[in-house]
Each structure stands twice: as C-alpha cells, then as structure tokens.
C-alpha cells in the first residue's frame, strides 16, 4: 500500500489530497469535487507535464528559439527531454509549430517551436 499527500491544482481551492494505492484500487480523500479525484488518480498513476524550454538557433535574428512538447510527457521523462533540447539546434527560419525534435527522448511527444525566428 502506498499513500501520497498532494495539493490539487485544478482550482484555487488547492485541496489537500490523500491518495492511496492498494493493489489496483486507488482511493482519493480530501477532495471536494470529482475533478480532484481524477487529478489525484492521474498524479498517482502517470503524472504528465508539458515541458517548455529553448534550443539554439543558427542563422536567425535571435540566439534561441523557444520550444515545447506538443503533448504532455511523463514526469519522469522531463530531464531527458530537456537534455535532448539542450543538445539540439535549429536553422532559421523557424515558424511556430515547426517540429524541432520528433518524439524527443522517446517520451512520446514532438518538440515544436513556440516562436518565429527569421533568417538573417
């Protein structure tokens, strides 16, 4: 049996959740709404995050291009995604949505540009 305390982030109430996993059964207490329960279960089983960072831009009007994972990735994959982005670079021009890294670090999401960079 595993129990974790966490703050619900769904609304400003910030309910103090107590999430318990007993075999396949997960129980959430401390929540005041249904969405809190869902959040608790997700955080217990597979917490997901969007990663935002930047990559080096070559030949552009700026030194960096900001990027994000197009979809959320498992929390434990964040470090690997960041490292992949740190190693990456992109040639200008770049447009919002351009894929910079496909399935970055095998985390299940493309990394895409979130800003434009013009070539200079």
């Amino acid at each position: 049996m595993e129990t974790r305390e966490m703050t619900c982030i769904i609304c400003p109430m910030g309910c103090a959740l107590r999430v318990t996993r007993d075999g396949d059964t997960i129980t959430v207490t401390g929540n005041t709404c249904k969405r809190g329960e869902k959040y608790g279960i997700q955080e217990m089983t597979m917490p997901m995050r969007t990663v935002t960072t930047s990559v080096t831009c070559r030949g552009g009007d700026r030194p960096l291009v900001s990027v994000k994972t197009k979809d959320q990735v498992p929390k434990e994959k964040i470090a690997e995604v960041l490292e992949a982005c740190r190693e990456a670079s992109v040639q200008a021009p770049v447009r919002v949505g351009d894929v910079i890294l496909a399935d970055a670090a095998g985390a299940g999401s493309d990394v895409v540009a979130t800003c434009n960079a013009d070539a200079v």
């Binding site: 935002t52 930047s54 994000k68 919002v96 979130t114 800003c115 434009n116």
Partner: peptide, 25 residues
C-alpha cells in the same frame, strides 16, 4: 510574453493552453 516561454496562457481566451510567445504570435 516573448520571454514567458512556459505554458499556461490562453485557456480562457483561446480555449487551449499556449506558451507566452505563441499567445503573442
């Protein structure tokens, strides 16, 4: 917004979650 490269913008206005530069763009 150009330097706010994190996400969390636009849920109310665009109904989707954007980064600062995307929202501005």
């Amino acid at each position: 917004l150009r330097q706010c490269i994190h996400n969390g913008f636009g849920l109310h206005y665009f109904g989707e979650e954007l980064t600062g530069p995307e929202y501005a763009q």
